[in-house]
Design a protein around this nucleic acid. Structure first.
Lengths: 205, 205
DNA sequence: CGACACATGTAACACGTTACATGATTTG
DNA sequence: CAAATCATGTAACGTGTTACATGTGTCG
């Protein structure tokens, strides 16, 4: 629902056309989340069908403008006023992977954790670099972009802390004999050459 | 892709049928993420079409079992071995909302932040309660469920820290006059007349 | 018997991505 | 002029949810 509500939020400042909405969205979120232009048009169609926006037809400049209806304005206000909290937290692929890893015999959990930590650390460095390189102007858009980058940083740091925690917990459980034997059959994939048992071989994509 | 790969991961332990796959997924992720049974069947159809699983037909007990193919086994191994990192970080609705809030005149950003913090704190308390109430057995499944809960905790704590950070940054910017007037008009959005569409200046990208 | 869990599906829809088609305008 | 950008779409597909249909087995 982020796209739908984002468009409504942008339209609170006045009529806009599709291409413009994408540009403003990306500018005001620091370019972190590219917005598919096709989706903008289909979402606008749905919003119009649902009576949240109104197609104002061609303005003088050859652009198809959309404006908020009263219902749309209310919906946008709601979105800002109400906290985002789905009943079920959004699926966290990493958490699922780890949960399945520790309950699947033959998976080298330690290696799964280390691979993810390395990748997340690298991503964290990239974001920090990006943050340093944007130390310049300070208007609302720059503040917004900065906050988005810092959101990525806070999230990545939490992920790394969680991975450290998992590593410790898994080691503790392994020493206590509470885990299925972690025969490291999975990690032989890439480093070594062809494994005798062809299971778990790397597939080129 | 979590469902697809989760099913493959579960099938590494042997043939399973649809209903059983859902039950095992939910058990091994602590019941945090309910898995839609309809999606299990359609995903199995796609996996079969793509040659990652094979329908073994009816076992003796009247269940339609699926088994991993070699390609499916490789894909599951890949999933565990490769870190999860999409090129673009998954959209964070809260970060988007805040970014749009600070760049939209007339939104009471302070109020948005406080509402979200309250909700997240409450969710955090719920998870902590759930964690305390599961202090019992300690096998692989219990470890997995615990790690999932702790993932939720780490994430929620990071969100709260980020909200605190945003609050401070927004206050600082407001005092420096770098924000559009944050008149709390959000509850009376209808007061705002149509804004003349500002000249649209696209930055080069 | 009736309710409920088990078990397998289908239909409709929302949301999201990739790719393609088409044309106007701008710019080197 | 050629290329890039602006601008509006459509098609196909993957993923995910909700709701419904259908039948079996079990248990009170």
């Amino acid at each position: 629902m982020s796209v739908k509500h984002s468009l409504l939020a942008l339209l609170t400042q006045g009529p806009r056309y599709g291409y413009q909405l994408r540009a403003e969205f990306e500018e005001r979120t620091g370019g972190t989340w590219p917005l598919n232009i096709g989706q903008v048009y289909t979402t606008l169609d749905r919003l119009e069908r649902d009576g949240l926006v109104a197609d104002q037809g061609d303005d003088g400049a050859g652009h198809r403008n959309y404006a908020l209806t009263e219902a749309g304005r209310a919906e946008a206000g709601d979105w800002f006023a109400q906290p985002s909290q789905p009943q079920n937290p959004p699926r966290n692929e990493l958490a699922i992977k780890l949960a399945l890893a520790v309950t699947t015999p033959g998976v080298d959990v330690e290696r799964v954790i280390q691979a993810q930590r390395t990748a997340t650390l690298r991503a964290l460095q990239d974001v920090n670099r990006a943050k340093r390189s944007t130390a310049g102007d300070s208007g609302p858009a720059e503040l917004a972009g900065l906050l988005v980058l810092e959101s990525l940083i806070f999230t990545a740091e939490a992920e790394i802390r969680w991975l450290d925690h998992c590593e410790a917990a898994v080691l503790r459980a392994a020493r206590a004999g509470q885990l299925p034997g972690a025969f490291p059959e999975i990690h032989a994939l890439e480093d070594q050459g062809p494994t005798p048992a062809a299971s778990f071989q790397r597939k080129s994509r």
